[in-house]
Amino acid sequence: MTVKKFGWFVLGIAGGFVVAHLVNKDPRGHELLSQVDARIGEFTDRMGDAYRDQEAQFVGLVAEAKDAVAGTAAAAQDAASDARASAAEAAAKAADAAKNVTATLTD
């Protein structure tokens, strides 16, 4: 932004404050500015409520996702444990079968 544009920007803000001050001195202007202020307050309240609603929805979704991940991890851990037990049982049976075959061959 050039210095000239910045100067106009600052002059516009200062002019806005001066006009608002002069309007506020008149009872009708004061009422108008009060209405504008009330509407702005109402708007910001609605925006804040909408933000909090969205935030609550996101918190709920994140909690559901965490629960789903925890359930999936527990199921995977159970499946791995079952597979390990089945593999150990199959290895023990294979070892017994190999012993029986070896015993039969040596007799």
Rank of each mutant, 00 (worst) to 15 (best):
M1C: 05
V3Q: 02
K4Y: 06
K5R: 12
G7S: 01
V10P: 01
G12K: 14
G12F: 10
I13F: 13
A14W: 12
A14T: 15
G15V: 10
F17L: 08
V18E: 07
V18Q: 03
V19P: 03
V23D: 05
N24D: 06
N24V: 02
K25T: 02
D26L: 04
D26M: 00
D26N: 13
D26P: 04
G29E: 01
H30T: 11
E31N: 12
L32E: 02
L33D: 04
L33R: 09
Q35G: 07
Q35P: 05
V36S: 06
D37L: 03
D37R: 05
R39V: 00
R39A: 02
I40T: 08
E42M: 08
F43C: 03
M47N: 11
M47P: 12
G48A: 06
D49S: 04
D49N: 10
Y51T: 15
R52W: 13
Q54T: 01
Q54F: 05
E55C: 00
E55M: 09
A56D: 04
A56V: 00
A56F: 03
A56N: 12
Q57Y: 05
F58R: 09
V59L: 12
G60H: 06
G60K: 14
V62T: 09
V62F: 04
A63F: 04
A65S: 05
K66E: 15
D67F: 01
D67W: 00
A68C: 00
V69N: 01
A70W: 03
G71T: 08
T72A: 08
A74V: 02
A75V: 00
D78G: 03
D78C: 03
A79D: 10
A79H: 14
A79E: 15
D82P: 05
A83W: 08
A83D: 11
A83V: 07
R84F: 13
R84V: 08
R84L: 12
A87R: 15
A87I: 13
A88K: 11
A90C: 03
A90P: 06
A91S: 08
A91I: 06
A92G: 02
A92C: 01
A98F: 03
N100H: 14
A103W: 09
A103E: 15
T104G: 00
T104H: 08
L105V: 14
L105D: 03
L105C: 04
T106M: 11
